[in-house]
Design a binder for these strands. Structure first.
Lengths: 161, 161
DNA sequence: TATTATTGCATAGCATGCTATTCATGGCTA
DNA sequence: TAGCCATGAATAGCATGCTATGCAATAATA
């Protein structure tokens, strides 16, 4: 026969691979969050930007890029969708014509409570099977990993000579 | 002045939100894996499918969908790219003309060792800041969360009457 | 057997992420 | 001041995820 299924020797266990598990878990969380915030007119990609803007708006795109650890092009596209959906306004900075400052619409401000409530509910439901100390451990470990895997070096290190 | 930055009362701490942290961590891992397997001609989306097929090929699309917890349409697109890139062949099942069985090319088989090695390296580097017991705890907690948040109900529950 | 329902997969359309590139503005310097 | 470099943002093109829908093959049923 032309084709015969082959089993290669097991050299990689996806259930022991952090990257594999994190990817799977992230998709599960994203699906759950999407289900809960779509009725509000929000989506998973806009949500982190909304959090940053609810905390304080008038930020520049560059500031959001740094805060959210997302590429500039990704942020530009996300902001374009948010503007299209009347969540934000972009106004040129008076001092520097290259800069656009991002302002929430009243509609967007009104979404803060229901949207963060939805996210809290998603987190609570997903973590329901863990004890309080397991939850703390899990959050702490993720924070530690993010910190350890994020460049905090100044983007500019001349050391000329 | 027309616009005045507002700070809303803090009601949501992203550093304590499992979903937020998982999303961030997943992007970090994906970027790191992409850097390492792109030279091999692989990408993050094809990687889980390759793992399943290295373990055993001749599987159907439907089997891969169930194994990887991905939507059928997503898998169809991923398989189309893999076929385009000469990683797989699709052959109609002789018994059921609707079914396509997926077979690895020799080129794809040859990638198993370098690709899983790359993934191991990514995981090891990312987790380098954790102790062995912290790593075990982290993997165990993720496994627990995935299990708790995955439907294992039979897709069909008639109970008619 | 003719009709209908189910099943497996493909396609359309969109959101979200990336890299590479372009564009416009501002700053520096010869 | 003119020309060059730096910076902020937009655009192009692609991968990867989703939902909704279409299509072809098979199964079930009237």
């Amino acid at each position: 026969m032309l084709f015969m299924a082959r089993k290669a020797p097991m050299t990689f266990d996806k259930h022991r691979s952090a990257g594999y598990l994190i990817n799977h878990l992230a998709r599960i969380f994203a699906r759950n969050l999407s289900d809960r915030i779509q009725p509000l007119g929000l989506s998973t990609g806009t949500f982190p930007a909304m959090l940053a803007l609810w905390e304080q708006d008038g930020r520049t795109q560059k500031e959001l890029v740094a805060l959210l650890d997302i590429e500039q092009a990704t942020m530009a596209n996300t902001l374009a969708r948010m503007e299209r959906d009347k969540l934000i306004l972009r106004k040129r900075d008076a001092q520097d014509g290259r800069v656009q400052r991002i302002w929430l619409t009243e509609r967007a401000r009104a979404l803060q409570a229901p949207a963060t409530g939805a996210a809290d509910a998603v987190n609570a439901a997903a973590l329901a099977g863990l004890s309080a100390s397991e939850r703390d451990t899990f959050l702490a470990l993720m924070g530690k990993l993010i910190a350890a895997n994020t460049d905090t070096d100044p983007p500019d290190d001349p050391t000329p000579g």
